Simulated assay, not measured.
Amino acid sequence: MGRYIFAVQSNPAEGLEQEYNDWYSNQHLNDVLALPGVLGARRLALADQQIMPTPHNFKYFCLYEIELDNLQTFIDALMARAGTERMPINKAMGNSLPVFWKVM
């Protein structure tokens, strides 16, 4: 079995931060956690204080721990559900950058 981190950086749509956080924490996390292979998730927000200026354009970050034999199977299941009743996308979702990392 392979272990992966699915890391998603994101921002809410302009003026919809409260709705975005409510949707992400109370619905979207559960929708992703329902996918086969997902072991857990953690949401983070960029801290106001940093050691040096950061080039990050994203305020929010979510890490999903995944364990499975074939990462493409997870990607296919995620894409098949995205935007459906099994994983609705809220209008409060702004831009995002999803990236997979292999655990060494």
Score class of each variant (00 low, 15 high):
E67I: 04
F100Y: 12
T73Q: 14
F100W: 15
D69Q: 06
N26T: 02
L78I: 02
L33S: 05
L97Q: 14
W101H: 14
S96I: 08
L39E: 07
N11T: 02
L46M: 14
L33G: 06
S10G: 05
C62M: 10
D76S: 13
F6Y: 15
R42N: 01
R86S: 06
Y64L: 04
L46Y: 07
L63H: 06
P12D: 03
A82G: 00
Q9T: 01
A7P: 03
N57S: 10
A45H: 02
A92V: 09
V32S: 11
A45L: 04
E19C: 05
A47V: 01
F58D: 02
D76F: 12
E19Q: 15
V99Q: 12
L16F: 08
F61S: 03
P12V: 06
T84D: 03
Q49A: 13
M87W: 04
Q9P: 01
V32G: 12
Q50L: 14
N57W: 04
N21Y: 04
Q50P: 03
Q9H: 13
I75D: 01
W23T: 02
D48S: 13
I66P: 00
S96N: 14
L68E: 00
T73V: 06
L33A: 11
N95Y: 07
P12K: 15
P36Q: 08
P88F: 13
Y20F: 15
M87H: 03
T84H: 09
Y20W: 08
C62D: 01
M1F: 06
Y4A: 04
V38I: 13
A92K: 13
H28W: 07
H28P: 03
S96H: 15
R81Q: 05
M93R: 11
G37D: 02
L63W: 11
N30C: 08
S25A: 14
